[in-house]
Amino acid sequence: MRSDLTAGGAESPSWLLRLAAWGGLVFLHFPILIILLYAFNTEEAAFSFPPKGFTLHWFSVAFGREDVLEAIGLSLKIACLATVIAMVLGTLAAAALYRRSFFGKESLTLMMVLPIALPGIITGLALLNGFKQLGIEPGVLTIVIGHATFCVVIVYNNVVARFRRTSYSLIEASMDLGADGWQTFRYIILPNLSSALLAGGMLAFALSFDELIVTTFTAGHEKPLPLWLLNQLTRPRDVPVTNVVAMLVMLVTMVPVLLAYLLSRGGDSVAGSGK
């Protein structure tokens, strides 16, 4: 018996494989659809299914709530600051590590991956402990430091991949033609990196906006959006408002990923694509 290999290299799958593959995709999206559905639910206690009716009422309620608006603003601020720091540090590290190999290079890469590879609870506790010993009061600053620490590797992965594809002779040519370091960076390196840098930045933003575990340790009295949500889940009240906020958070974390994908299509790859 021969396997069904078509000319294009794509096999024609059996119905079982087709079912399993599409079933897997449905499994991944079903809970997300439920969140979208429940945000428009008319009920006060939105745990029953199917929903009795649909309304936009809870959106206006949610946006009238001081605590919700504050949490959104705080999370946006943290994500922006952490992303900027991660972009600077990640680009510096990528520029240093992409071409030359030297003693300790492997450990440097490992050090950048560790904050995201080790369970968040370890990173969180370690940072909290470190801040305590330095006498830094937990607050916005400590949250930003924590987020930036694990966002660096995301930017690094994207930028280093682009650096490897950028010919070094471009940089040498620029220097030969009389440009100084800043000009070379501004007119040669940066335009080359821009889309990779932007994609990495957006992923870092999404990661920071949603981060919960490290944040619980470094937040002190601050309540960014994921913490606000967790608080609602452990003590359920205002279910409709929670549903609306949940949908918004989901969209804010999904849209940057989509944009990053579109930006880095065509030969380039986003972190995690594994190609």
Binding site: L28, H29, I32, I35, L203, A206, L207, F209, D210, L212, P226, L229, L230, L233, A246, M247, V249, M250, V252, T253, M254, V257, L258, Y261, V270, G272
Partner: peptide, 10 residues
């Protein structure tokens, strides 16, 4: 990718 990156807590 989308469900992978969608908010953990949500």
């Amino acid at each position: 990718m989308l469900p992978m990156w969608a908010s953990y807590i949500v």
